[in-house]
Design a protein around this nucleic acid. Sequence first.
DNA 1: GTTAGGG
DNA 2: CCCTAAC
Length: 612
Amino acid sequence: MVMQKRLDYGFSGYEVPSVPRASRSPRGRGKIRKKPDSNQIQAFDILASVAGNLLQKNQSSVPDNAASAKDPRSFSGISVKENKQENQGGLFKEEQLEHGTCSEAVSGCVPNLQVKHENQRVMGDSSLHENHLEGQGQNVLEREDERVKLRSTNEKITCIKNRSDGLIEPGQKASKDCSAENHVEKPSLEARSHMNLNSLPNGFGTRKLVNRDDDENIVRCTQLNSKNMISGSPGSPPDTIKVKDASHFANDENNSGDNSVLENSERMYPFKKRKFFYQTSSSTSDSWSHCQGIVDSSSPRVNGTNHGAVIEESSSMADQQVHPASKGCNVKLSIKSFKVPELFIDIPETATIGSLKRTVMEAVTSILGDELHVGILLQGKKIRDDSKTLIQTGISQDDKRHRLGFMLEPRHNRMSSSYNDDPCLLTTGSRQKISRQSTSLMLQQGTYNVSRERSTVKIENCAEGDLNGVSSLGDTSANNNNMSKCRALVTVPAINMDALAVVPYRRKSGNPDFGQRRIRRPFSVLEVEALVQAVEKLGTGRWRDVKQRAFDNAKHRTYVDLKDKWKTLVHTARISPQQRRGEPVPQELLDRVLAAHAYWSQQQCKHQVKSM
DNA sequence: GTTAGGG
DNA sequence: CCCTAAC
């Protein structure tokens, strides 16, 4: 579907100047007040917080799967039996496509995270900058049973298949240093990556990385013929393009078209500001769908198979550890990595590594952006009794291999009940699946145009990031091909934007005590376009209508959000491109913003004058 | 419940 | 995004 005709810059397309109710004169409404303290970190979970920082820093860091190879159950969310398969056995699947494919596990390691108990001192690198996706970390490829696993220490995911792309090939030997097995079960999450929509030329093949979760954590890399992507010529391999969170955000049916929006996401979530709240929610279901953290004894390197997957006390401490009785001995833990749900990524071959990183990061941050609970696993078992001391639990003992694991569990995992306004609302049936893997959105290869079949896209994910629905702009440009076809594995009947845009947290329903700030969800270019279009038509001051018209299905976008976005767009349009941040908004859109803004401002003035 | 604005 | 006065 195409995004709607572009409006002429003329104002002919504007609707009759309906001045907003009671022409609001510049009455100073807002008032200055002290900023809420709500931001204070509340009962927090240092682990979560640290993890957030780390992620923030390493934008694309992907958690390491490695972990508990021994205890697959730790990840979970998924059925236990699946877990039992353990790694080696076939968790990786390879899929071949006509044009070649490859499967790989994608995993990344979060930089070492060290947590010192007692004093809660966090060591380790926590200073990451915000936008540098590149450059850190090294990719490690491992080959296993003909399957290639890719692991990255920091944030890279490499698609191994085509040489043409210059990526590492499976056969190539890559340095490996990361843990080897990580096939633990994890929830799957799909992340669509539409990389720079604007910058990608049309018609490029798309590479798809799929990390599947079902029982296997695998990532498939599929190459598509560029031609196919574009035209979808018959006989061509099915496009496996995925839609990111498949969220279509708004569709204005009336507007001749849908305003579907593709979301580009290239932004990072502001973990800096994010707060993690400790949730006591009881259900620590066995499904740790989100992330699992693995604490590893300090040293990064591991042996053969378990690189860093297991947690140990830091060696330094280990030596000192005395028996349980000894008090006063701090336990140092180094969380080597947190595991995240599987990621499903489709990305054009032409996308840059940076884009890929961003995409992955986005997916990861989306997951982590949720309200999290930290779960502790000791030798595969979840420790639920929060009142136990480390010593009692055995963590402080000198056993060097505690296999202590940290997991980040999204709150909504357990839910099932209150999902009212939660986007995650899916039908019961689908919910079941969801509960199984709360964070995953899986799309299956298929050939269909997302834009039209949105309703069938399914999602199970908690990603908050941008999940707005998106549909390809038919003609607009480079984006078209990107996501021309995708199908969700799990399908939920008619999902609405919400479903697509799964927002993990429930703000008000949960613990009222902790009003959590909503996660930041930058507007995608498509959303901006939809907004602009609506405002052009309706004018400023009718945000509710704008919302209804263009973002009706995007529950996560309130009219206030739209109003705010418009405000920022106007501001953005007025500043120099160099000063703009975030995902670039096409100048053309900004021009429209200014034009519409000027027009409606004028209308408002006229109206006011008239009424005087 | 909306809108407008400052934070 | 949040918060809230003013509607």
